[in-house]
Every structure is written in C-alpha cells, then in structure tokens.
Design a protein around this nucleic acid. Sequence first.
RNA 1: GACCCCGUAGCUCAGCUGGACUAGAGCAAGUGCCUUCUAAGCACUAGGUCGCAGGUUCGAAUCCUGCCGGGGUCGCCA
Length: 574
Amino acid sequence: MNLFAYFHDAVLRALGQMSEAGELAAGLDYSRIATEAPRDSSHGDVSTNAAMVLAKTAGQQPRKLAEALAARLGQHTDVDKADVAGPGFINLVLKKGFWPRVLEAIISEADSYGDSKIGAGIKSNVEYVSANPTGPLHVGHCRGAVFGDALASLLTKTGYDVTREYYINDAGAQVDVVGRSAYLRYREALGENIGEIPAGLYPGDYLKPVGEALARDHGAALLSKSENEWLPIAKAKAVAMMLDMIREDLASLNIRQEIFFSEKSLHDSGAVAETVERLRGQGHVYQGRLPPPKGEIPEDWEDREQTLFRTTAFGDDVDRPLIKSDGSYTYFASDVAYSASKIDRGFNELVYVLGADHAGYVKRLQAVGAANAGNRKVEVIARLCQLVRLFRNGEPVKMSKRAGDFVTLREVVDEVGPDVVRFMMLYRKNEAPLDFDFAKVTEQSKDNPVFYVQYAHARICSVLRKGAADDRKPDFSLLTDEGELAVVKRLAAYPRLLESAALAHEPHRVSFYLADLAGDFHALWNKGKESPHLRFIVESDSETTISRLAFLRAIRYVLASGLRILGVTPVEEM
RNA sequence: GACCCCGUAGCUCAGCUGGACUAGAGCAAGUGCCUUCUAAGCACUAGGUCGCAGGUUCGAAUCCUGCCGGGGUCGCCA
C-alpha cells in the first residue's frame, strides 16, 4: 500500500464529486496536484495543494475552494480531521486506526512492500561501467559501477523492465595497444628477455597471463607471422581475458550485467555502415566542414570536408564527424550504431551512466537517440558521476599518472568489503564529488552510515531471536508512543520515496532514507533504556511484546528492502 | 571562448518534479544518560542574510537571466 497514492486518489475523487455537484468547473488539469507529507508533522499526516493549484483556472478563491474540498475529505473513513491552513493547504490528520493498517500491509506484503507500477513496464536500458577492456578496473570505475547497478535495481523495484548492459570498446586503437602489449608478453613467455616495456604499451603485470595463454595455445607459431596476422589473435585473446578479469572485478561488488555488447561486432556486422547510410538518407548525415575547435587548437588540426552528423539539429553545439581522414569510422560512429541497436531492441529509455569527464558527450548522445528514434518515443537519460577522492586517515592517496600506478577497484573492495564500497558510493548525490576515507568507512560508529544502518538491522534481528514465538495476532493499536508512530510514518513513506527516487534516477535518496529510518529506530531503542515499558520485549505484557516484535519485522522488511536495492547485505549479526 | 556540475550552520552534506508560521541531518563545541533486549548507542543546547543581484509566481534554497567563486570538458582518443 502506498499512503500518498491512496490519499491522492481520495483527493481526486472528492474533486470529482465536487464537479458533479456543480461546485467546481469540469475538465480542470489535476496533474499539478500533489499529495504528500507536510514538512512539519504537527500540520498533520497528509497534505495537498489541490486548492491552490486549481484556484486560478477554477475561478475560485483558494481558501474557499480548500474549505469545500476539506469538508468532503473530512468525510473520508480514514480521516480524523481536515484543516485548511496558510494560503490554502489542506492538512489531513488520519484516524488512529489507520496506522495499524499500514503495518499490517507491510507485513503481508513483506518483500514486495514498496513495489510500484510507476515504471509502467517501460523498457529501460541501463548502461554502466563500459570501461575499455585494457586492464583491471580502477577505483574511478567504482562509483559508476555501483550507481548504475543500484539504479537498475531501483527501477526494477518500481516497475521498469530493466536490462543491465556493458559496452565493450573492443574496436579502437586502445585494444590494438593491448594486443601489442600482450604479444610482447607472449615473447616473454617463450623465454625472450623483453627488458623494459616500451613507452606506449601497457606495462601492467596483468598481461603476463595473456602472453602465457598465447604461448600455450600457439607455441612459437606466432613469432614467424607478420603483425597483420598475429595482432588480431593477440588482441582477441587479450580482450577476452581482460573482460573476464573485469567481470570478476565487478562480481566482487556483486555486479553482474546481463549483456556485454561488443563495439567490434557493430563493425563486423556492418551495422555501423548501415546506420550511417540510413541516417544519411534521412538527412541527418552530410558532407561538410567544421569550424576549428575553440580554445587551444590541436597542432594537427586540418580543415577539410568530412562526413558529419547534424547533431546541432538536436541541440548539440557542433556537428560531429563520423569518418576519420584514413577512411575508418570514428568512435562516435559506432556509438550511433550502438544507440540504434538499443532502440531496435525495443528500449524506450536509454540510461547512460558516465564519468563527469564525459559531460561534453551528453548532448551528442541525446541527439543521436532522438535521430535514431524517429517518431518513436525514446528518452535518453545521462547520469554523471563525479570523481572519488581517496583518503587514508585524512591524507589523500597519491596516484601518479604513470601507467600502472593506480589503485584498483579490487584493492578497495578487498580492503573494506563490498557493502562498505557500495553504500558509501551511494551516500552522496551523483553529481557531487565524493571523499572516500579508508579509515572512516570501516569505523564502527554512528559516524559511519553503513555501519549505522546495518547495525539497526542487526539489532532488530537480535531482538527477534530473543522474542519467543507466538501465534497470536499482533494488535498494532497498542503502539502509541510518539517514537513508534514516527517510525510507522517513515515506513509508510517508503513506497513514495522509491517512486520519486526512481523518477529522478537518484538511488542516493534510498541511502539517506535508510539512514533516517535507522536513526528513528535507534532512538526508539534507547527510549527502552529509560522507560522499560517501551522496550520491545516486555516480560509482563505478552500482548504488547507480540505487537512490538511484529512491528520490528515490518521495520526489518523495509531496511532489508532498501539495502537490497543498494546491493548492501542486511546482516543479522555484527 | 563555449558547454556541464557545484556554491545551504565552523566542517561534511540532505532538502522529494516551487509550498506554509521556526530551511534540516551528521561531525566538531557544551550538558546529561551504562545493575537494562548489543552505550558499536541515545537525549538536549548552541550554530545559517540557502554565493550576489534582478525576474517569474498566491508562494523560490528549488524555475529563468546576469554576475562572482570552485571543479570539469572541448580533438578524426576511446
């Protein structure tokens, strides 16, 4: 059950009755009406702005309209009191009997509490990480990886039909470099002293197993071949093995994309050429010249006629080249074909999770999506994740740009564990930079939100273990303490929270919600220290004990549900 | 030069597709609370002209314009 959706319907029904009764003009736009929790709980439980939103078009004074509407809402079986306040807010105070029903609903819905249909089965493609298959993932990939994965879970929970996808950049110059680097390691594996790795090749040890594998598969056969012959072999092997390593890195964070989409396959199948020609036919692609880039002009800039995508027609700043001077397609060209593939596969929502350094790419992606979509409705949503700055006891962790000297994702996960990495990466909104201090995130204190939330869950489990099993039905009307009601109200807001987080594509809201809920719970716990009758287990009162234990189960469902969306383990003991 | 993100309490940050008289947390500062279901915690106090200036609105931290400050991006690189 969704508290706010429930009363939103009630508001709309009341308005309908009013227009039938001739008290309100028919055919008004109800879309801006909001039904939500008032900021200050002393105003009531549910609040609506309906009267203020409708006043102008209805030709009525907001307060008068509000009073008429409040009168009708006051009749609702669950409403104790409907007041008009301020410029025309209607505040509803719910009957005491309503809150027990919320808890009953949570317990009967259990894990499915908070499920929503707001996604309306929209086919959403969430593409994230998509790092070049040239080495292990580094710490910079963590955030996008976790963000994308949690967003996908959030969208699934709220009724979207989600596919998690990884785009493999296995077609460009970077993978040629990996191929050559692997070939060098192959020669090394055959006993040659290769000395220092030359500049321009990847020096990392992680390519040694690729060289060894090539040696196993081919013996010395590749040594006598020309680069034209051995490069594709070395490249394919290196990409495959790097990708396996990346999959393992992701798995260490419990991330598993369903689709790994190869850029190379778009070239091999002719999809890039087809897409470019189709768009040319539609007038989106033309031969022309570009103005020189602003700012610092690259040394090798040359003015020439080239094949361009008219992205400016869709809001981009300049048109973008599709074909390089050597006749091969640009990276952007394969991206155009990739976008077309997603749309052909039936997605109506394309979510790109990118690093902030790709901000300049967003308009282009949107332009391409719009052009490929034609008259189909396809939304392109880009979410940018800002940098993560690593600290160790307050000191920044130095990472030189020299290749090979970076902190890998795996190192971070191995040191602090996947739960900590995932929660911390989501405990900041994605556009804000994030500081990650190894010492702080593993601290066992309330300053550490991961611990704080997991501790709440573990505490509940601890009490539930102590509570004796009893089949009697809980009576939630026994829960009358202010602290208890605060928790119930927070639980009631969960479905709505998920919906708004999903619509905004902002999973961090779930983390903050959980920290708040955990705070409410810890406060309640502590009340039991001062007032023994408020403890969850009250020896002398089995009725209350049964009801409170059931209440704890409801809290536990919500904590666990939220943690699952974030991909963090709801631990039972700590 | 253009575009993107950020600017909210001493510090780190929330603020839900604009909403109400008192803009919220946490840390840091101050004061209390352990014979008790885990004090790995809780309660209370203090602290802010929401970068600045205009505009839209019944109503702006939230939307629009300009400016200031911090970060980022610009390529036939992926």
